[in-house]
Design a binder for these strands. Structure first.
Length: 492
RNA sequence: CGGGGUGUAGCGUAGCCCGGUAUCGCGCCACAUUUGGGAUGUGGAGGUCGUCAGUUCGAAUCUGGCCACCCCGACCA
């Protein structure tokens, strides 16, 4: 706790890492590329899960669970998808260990115990799910099938970063089956809207909704929709994706249904997901050099009460006062904790709760007892105010909303300021290097141009924004005609 | 996966070049005094020096393999 966080402007990655570790969100584990999500980090993830899960249920989805392992033959059924993930799959080849005859006390893989068919540790579950759906769907009456699962997946990444990219991560994956293309498309966009709503209303992170280009599309999808967020260092982060899978998986797994006319047709599919990567987005959107900043709607603890006292008697008196306050706040559904730890001084506690991002801190000392007041400190602005004890609930309730709004507004303002329209390649490179952020520019629509720009500048097309205004122009790279601007950025 | 770097108490480090079992700070435990922004004093505990092997009378120190982490590139949510 004594360690101070590396300032953002000194070293942004180090700052990020410090926040994750020092705010007790997660830690590196003994397993390469895998992290331990610590209680404080997991509590935030649970808040995210609760909010998202409710939105999924409200839109008619149900949860289920599918296996971690996918037989190789199933995995390779949808070729494009399989190819897309092949390079990063963990594979189970054996089912037993035995004592090492050469080395007492050690174990070796039993060569006798080779699996007849290798099992792939899921990097995503389309294969096993569509193989299962085949047995569940016969008629249009079985549709739509709207299922989500909360699970872990494994993608063997070369280079990992806590929350942003780890070999194993937690996520939810929705997999739906529909009778018509239109319905599947509506579902795809509906879930994109759910994600955007969640990001903006709960995470206080503004996002751009858009469609991916062919290069960036999910392997096996006809179209990939996404929400893109902008971090404080000007790099983009894909925060969620929703895929229109067409009939690709239905064909690969032979999932047909009888329509009202009795004719057989392949079903239409979608899949959509967000992961613990959202934790990274949350951190890099709001936090500062003092530590984590959590928007009230995702804060496991919204209010922390810190007593400032002299002697045991002093603590007793304040505890009674604080206990009453705590009860009143809890009645308003505000999550609140009383930090009565005896061995730490108030200043230390202030710093610690700041580091952990608790939105509101209430200080109560002798003076407050005498005057019937409370000292309120807000995490987002680091400002303090003194209020009357009587108005505590109404004040705090309003303050939490205000903090939530303020965080969103600040992030939205930043995104606006960091989004630049450019019309020449010179300008494009200059903005990327000197200002960074989102860059709106004309593009000729070809993968070749996209590749070239990526090679030369490391910027990728994050998306073609939805509801993009038509605008005549010429591609900044090739000079060919273009009808709309697309969103470029360097990305995580 | 390629190039570079690092690994010594829970954390951060000195020692390594020039071999002789380890320094300092924070934290931890006990007691006392403290408590409105990271307390102070006194006493105390804590180490197979990342790991495995080699060289040597003797290895934190020299050599090699492995592992992990960090930075840069390729890949990706």
């Amino acid at each position: 706790m004594s360690k101070v966080i590396t300032p953002q402007e000194q070293d942004y990655s180090k700052w990020y890492n410090d926040i994750v570790v020092e705010a007790d969100l997660a830690d590196h584990s003994a397993v390469r590329g895998c992290m331990v999500i610590k209680p404080h980090g997991y509590a935030i993830w649970e808040k995210m899960q609760q909010a998202l899960d409710k939105m999924f249920k409200d839109t008619g989805h149900v949860n289920a669970y599918f296996p971690l392992f996918i037989p190789k033959s199933l995995f390779e059924a949808e070729e494009k998808n399989a190819e897309g993930f092949a390079k990063e799959c963990a594979v189970v080849t054996h089912y037993r260990l035995k004592s090492d005859p050469q080395n007492k006390g050690k174990l070796i893989v039993d060569p006798e115990a080779r699996l007849e068919e290798e099992l792939i540790v899921r990097p995503t579950s389309e294969a096993i799910i569509w193989n299962t759906y085949k047995g569940w769907i016969q008629s249009y009456r079985d549709l739509p099938l709207l299922i989500n699962q909360w699970a872990n997946v494994v993608r063997w990444e070369m280079r990992t970063r806590l929350f942003l990219r780890t070999a194993e991560f937690l996520w939810q994956e929705g997999h739906t089956a529909h009778a018509t293309k239109e319905e599947a498309l509506i579902e795809t966009k509906q879930m994109l809207d759910v994600y955007a709503h969640f990001a903006e209303k709960f995470m206080a992170v503004p996002v751009i909704k858009g469609v991916k280009t062919a290069n960036e599309r999910f392997a096996g999808a006809d179209d990939t929709y996404c929400i893109e967020a902008l971090m404080q260092d000007g790099k983009a982060l894909q925060a969620g994706t929703s895929h229109f899978l067409g009939q690709n998986f239905a064909k690969a797994f032979d999932v047909k249904f009888a329509n009202k006319e009795g004719k057989l047709d392949y079903v239409w599919a979608t899949s959509w997901g967000v992961s613990t990567r959202l934790m990274g987005a949350l951190i890099m959107s709001h936090s500062d050099n003092h530590g984590l900043v959590i928007p009230p709607k995702l804060a496991p603890t919204q209010v922390i009460i810190v007593p400032i006292y002299k002697g045991e008697e002093g603590l007793q008196k304040i505890s009674v006062y604080a206990g009453e306050l705590k009860k009143r706040l809890q009645e308003k559904n505000i999550s609140v904790k009383f930090d009565s730890r005896d061995s730490l001084r108030p200043g230390f506690k202030f710093a610690e709760h700041e580091l952990k991002g608790i939105p509101v801190r209430i200080g109560i000392g002798e003076r407050d007892l005498e005057n019937g007041t409370l000292e309120i400190a807000r995490r987002d602005t680091l400002s303090k105010a003194s209020i009357k004890m009587e108005e505590a609930e109404t004040y705090i309730e309003k303050l939490l909303e205000e903090i939530q709004t303020n965080l969103y507004n600040k992030a939205a303002e930043r995104m606006k300021n960091m989004t630049t329209k450019v019309d020449t390649y010179q300008e494009f490179k200059k903005v990327l290097d000197e200002k960074s952020g989102f860059v709106l520019a004309h593009w000729d629509g070809t993968s070749e141009t996209e590749e070239k720009i990526k090679e030369e500048t490391k910027a990728t097309i994050r998306c073609i924004p939805l509801n993009n205004p038509e605008e005549r122009g010429v591609c900044i790279y090739s000079g060919k005609p273009s009808t709309q601007r697309v969103l470029f950025a360097r990305a995580y």
